[in-house]
Simulated assay, not measured.
Amino acid sequence: MKKIQMNFHRLSKGQKMIAQYIMENYDKAAFMTAAKLGEKVGVSESTVVRFANVLDFEGYPHMQKELQEMIRTRLTTVQRIEMSTDYSNEENVVKKVLKADIDNLRMTMESIDFKVFEEAVKAITEAKHIYIVAMRSSTTLADFLAFYLNLIRNNVYVTSRSVSDIFDILFRVNKDDLVIGIGFPRYSSKTIEALDYAKSQGAKVLAITDSLISPLVSHADFTLTAKSNMESFVDSLVAPLSLLNALIVAVGIKEKRKVSTTFGKLEDIWEKYKVYS
């Protein structure tokens, strides 16, 4: 938006029409192809491409990506529903959603910082207590992570499961503990506040979020990112879930003896009480 304002005087008549449309409809423009944006404004696709170049972007895809990053955290549910109306039929829905999830997995794998991943595994194995903080759709991820960490080690708590306020659970947190905050757009202010408190008490904080410009990052000692892009009112949790899966497996390998003992005892309990048919 700042680039548009600074370069507006340099734009041609057609490019000014594009700029005006983006300023007024940024939530829709961010997910349009160059051809579709040109059609909507009434200019050619090449004019849209040149517009991106005038703003010093490498091309239209680069400008579009930057615009998406800027506005994705501000989209309301209504705006997400409006964006998803491009799914014309059931077959199109399946293909577009699966492709988006595949792209999210690919981008997550390409951007993973393996050094930070190792630090996260070490923090999980060494922490006296682990608190997992997540709200809204991210509670699904928190429950998945907590379910398996509880099989590996003791003292794992999930704030979303409690009837108490987050701070009623976190008030004893200290330097020997690890707080794992999970948050994706739209970010929960409660999660951010909880991480801020944990950090002030000296606890280590691991943020699991979608990008390094997420508001969770400024309160974290280390951050793991997983892409959750989805042009819909539904959050894509495929890549974040896969990242958590990798984290759990890595912790399990570190704690192989404990895991073996735990599951040996559980198998006896499951057999005695016919947990599985």
Rank of each mutant, 00 (worst) to 15 (best):
I132Y: 02
D168F: 11
R50C: 06
I182W: 02
P240N: 03
D143I: 02
L11P: 00
K175T: 13
V156T: 09
T108P: 04
A198G: 01
K256G: 06
E82C: 08
A239E: 08
V156L: 04
A250S: 14
T85H: 09
N155C: 03
Q64M: 08
Q5Y: 06
V238T: 15
W270F: 15
K3M: 08
E119S: 11
P185E: 03
I112T: 11
I102H: 11
M1K: 04
D268K: 14
V133G: 07
V234P: 00
E90F: 11
Q201C: 14
M32F: 15
K40M: 12
R50F: 07
S260M: 12
K272F: 07
S260W: 04
M83G: 15
A52Y: 07
H129T: 03
I152T: 05
A100E: 14
K175A: 15
A123Y: 11
S137M: 05
D56E: 14
L151E: 12
E91V: 01
S111F: 00
I269W: 10
I169D: 09
D168S: 15
V259D: 04
S88F: 03
Y131K: 08
S236C: 09
I112A: 12
A134H: 03
S111K: 14
V156I: 13
Q201T: 09
I248T: 05
T261M: 09
L145M: 13
K99V: 01
G181C: 10
S242T: 15
N104G: 05
S138K: 04
I169F: 06
I71S: 01
A207T: 11
Y60G: 06
P61Q: 13
N53K: 13
S138R: 08
T77E: 13
M1N: 05
D86P: 00
S200Q: 10
V173A: 11
K254E: 14
E45L: 09
I22L: 07
W270V: 00
L149P: 00
N53C: 00
V238W: 00
K65F: 07
H219R: 12
E69P: 00
A142W: 03
Y148M: 03
A226I: 02
K265M: 05
I132T: 05
A100L: 01
E45A: 08
M32R: 15
D177Y: 03
I182N: 02
L141T: 08
D27S: 11
V48S: 12
G42R: 11
L67P: 05
P215R: 11
S260A: 06
A239D: 08
D27G: 00
T209W: 10
I81Y: 07
N89K: 01
L237P: 03
M32Q: 15
K2R: 13
P215E: 00
N92T: 06
V217L: 07
M23V: 06
V156G: 04
S88A: 10
H129F: 10
E24Y: 00
T191A: 13
S84G: 01
D86S: 11
K40Y: 01
F51W: 02
I166V: 14
N174C: 09
Y197P: 01
N245Y: 14
N245A: 05
D210Y: 09
T77V: 10
A52P: 02
K99S: 03
V205L: 11
G42W: 14
P185I: 01
